[in-house]
């Protein structure tokens, strides 16, 4: 199993865009190595701007670059960009529907040893609530690259959420990928697991093990959080009758919340949510944290059994 951080996909895509699109510019806030924007910086220094440790100014500067016809990718850790610069994203960028792309790194508790201050667990909630914002959570480095390339073509603001740790690559270059369209990772009839991000690999492990117990799990990769693929969610509810959501993020107002919103309006069925349960993280290694915070395939299997009992 090849492993790679999803943020590598961002860095690779920026290099491709550097070549293919002269309007693409990249901004960072003193974390260029960690966010992989250093790859772009070293190749296209005249189109790279380090704004220093000043995230709010970085978002405003990106807004101005977009007003001037550029396609800026503003980049730093998720907590500092989606959190600290939220008003700048809301009022300066989204209200004016400016063509600013945001790369939010270190999403999730798997950031590990740095602890709660650096583990972004709220960006899905913070970003999807803003009008005009679009949001993608890639599940592996390949999808990270595809999503970043797509973002450059999508008009208006787009938030891309990436993770720090090297995680399994389980999609293929040739897989079709369309913004706003969930990808079917496993066909199934008894229950649907809807997830986003690298934790989807755990969902696949869970589906495989449930199959041995005779339970058929559909697995959907909901890489686009907004606009969410309502059709795929409703079809899953109609065809499998039960849903488990899976995310490395607060379930409240996260993917869990987003899926539940679609279901209550269209096709209410039992839902169980796997994710962070209204708590901060802490220091630890990613595997230990996944166990402690209930983010492993075993936790997903438990949730599947629970939701089937409610069917």
């Amino acid at each position: 199993m090849i492993k790679k951080p999803t943020r590598d996909g961002y860095g690779e895509a920026l290099l491709i865009l550097g070549e293919s699109n002269p309007d693409v510019v990249v901004l960072d806030a003193d974390l260029a190595m960690s966010t992989r924007t250093n790859w772009f910086r070293d190749k296209y220094p005249e189109r790279f701007f380090d704004i220093g440790i000043a995230e709010q100014d970085m978002l405003g500067t990106a807004a101005g670059l977009a007003m001037g016809g550029k396609i800026p990718f503003a980049t730093t850790y998720g907590v500092f960009i989606a959190g600290r610069a939220w008003d700048q994203i809301r009022t300066t960028i989204c209200y004016a529907n400016l063509n600013v792309k945001i790369g939010g790194m270190h999403g999730g508790i798997s950031v590990g040893a740095d602890g709660a201050t650096h583990q972004a667990l709220e960006e899905i909630a913070l970003m999807r609530v803003i009008p005009n914002m679009k949001m993608i959570v890639p599940c592996d480095a390949i999808e990270g690259r595809k999503a970043t390339l797509a973002a450059a073509e999508i008009p208006g603001p787009v938030y891309l959420r990436f993770a720090r740790e090297a995680t399994p690559i389980f999609t293929k270059e040739e897989d079709e990928w369309q913004f706003g369209k969930a990808n079917l990772l496993r066909a199934g009839t008894d229950v649907t697991i809807i997830g986003c991000g690298p934790i989807l690999y755990e969902a696949l492990l869970a589906a495989d093990q449930m199959a041995q117990e005779g339970i058929s799990c559909r697995v959907l990769n909901m890489h686009t959080i907004k606009p969410i693929d309502t059709e795929a969610i409703v079809a899953a509810a109609e065809e499998t009758g039960a849903i488990v959501t899976v995310e490395e993020h607060q379930v409240n107002a996260g993917l869990g919340g987003a899926v539940a919103e679609v279901l209550v309006k269209n096709k209410p069925v039992p839902v169980e949510m796997v994710g962070i349960m209204d708590t901060f993280g802490e220091s630890g290694n990613p595997d230990e944290l996944a166990i402690k915070y209930g983010l492993t395939h075993r936790d997903i299997m438990t949730a599947v059994r629970r939701v089937l009992n409610r069917k």
């Binding site: 500067t61 807004a63 101005g64 700048q88 004016a96």
Partner: peptide, 25 residues
């Protein structure tokens, strides 16, 4: 109207971004 505003403190960053875009263009 060249920018949307109302939340104070944000305009000068936008002006800088516009100036950087002009330089590149």
């Amino acid at each position: 109207i060249d920018n949307s505003s109302g939340s104070l403190g944000q305009g000068l960053s936008q002006a800088n971004g516009l100036a950087l875009a002009a330089r590149l263009n």
